[in-house]
Simulated assay, not measured.
Amino acid sequence: MMLIRKLSPDETPPWELLVLADPSRMIVEGYIKSSCIYVGEISGVIMAVYVVKETSKIVVEIMNVAVHEDYQGKGLGKQLISHAINEASNQGYAQLEIGTGNSSIHQLKLYQQCGFRIVGVDFDYFTRSYDEPIYENGLLCQDMIRLCYTFEN
């Protein structure tokens, strides 16, 4: 069983997980300063993380979500996304957004299974924003696929 909790300001962020989802520590450092970090613990050890940032009064975005490699494929990612949806709903947001790479096949499937809809593509985002090319699932990660979960009010 995974316990999900908000990371307190005096705790060190789980960098090994954060850079698993986003290889640029510099980019991660840029958004975590104004974000909330939630961690998933199993037996008191952090095995998963997600980061959310308010982008407007009614919209919050998942900026980063990662599960330790040894625990991937066991439903922890779905637990994190479900937690993020519930938190955003409880806090009164109208939408929860997330972006992922065109090559992130498993993530695209997961987000849609959780109720997110594709709302756009930021063409060449990853080739524009990262110094080194990113390859995943045998594909060059070039474009950011934007997805949105809309709450019924």
Rank of each mutant, 00 (worst) to 15 (best):
M47W: 06
I4M: 02
Q91K: 15
R5G: 08
E97M: 14
M144I: 05
F126S: 05
F151W: 06
V45L: 10
M47P: 00
D70Y: 11
L18Q: 10
R5V: 05
S35P: 00
Y50E: 12
C114E: 02
T127D: 05
D122F: 12
G92A: 08
L18Y: 03
E97S: 13
S103Q: 10
I81Q: 01
R146S: 08
I58H: 15
E16W: 11
V52M: 15
G138W: 00
E16Y: 11
G77I: 08
G44M: 11
C141I: 00
E132Y: 07
P13V: 07
M1P: 11
G101H: 07
K53A: 08
L18M: 10
G77R: 04
M144L: 07
V60A: 10
A88L: 04
N90R: 15
K33W: 02
V28D: 03
E136N: 01
F151T: 04
I81R: 01
Q91A: 14
H68V: 00
D70N: 14
M1I: 08
Q72S: 00
P9Q: 09
L108E: 04
I145M: 01
R128D: 14
N86D: 15
K78E: 10
Y130W: 06
I46F: 03
Y50L: 06
K6L: 14
L3V: 14
A66R: 03
Y93C: 05
L17M: 01
V49Y: 05
E87A: 13
L7N: 08
V119E: 06
N153K: 13
G92C: 01
F126W: 03
T100R: 07
L80N: 05
K109V: 14
G92E: 10
G30A: 14
I32M: 01
Y50S: 13
C114L: 06
T55V: 13
Y50R: 03
R25G: 10
Q142L: 13
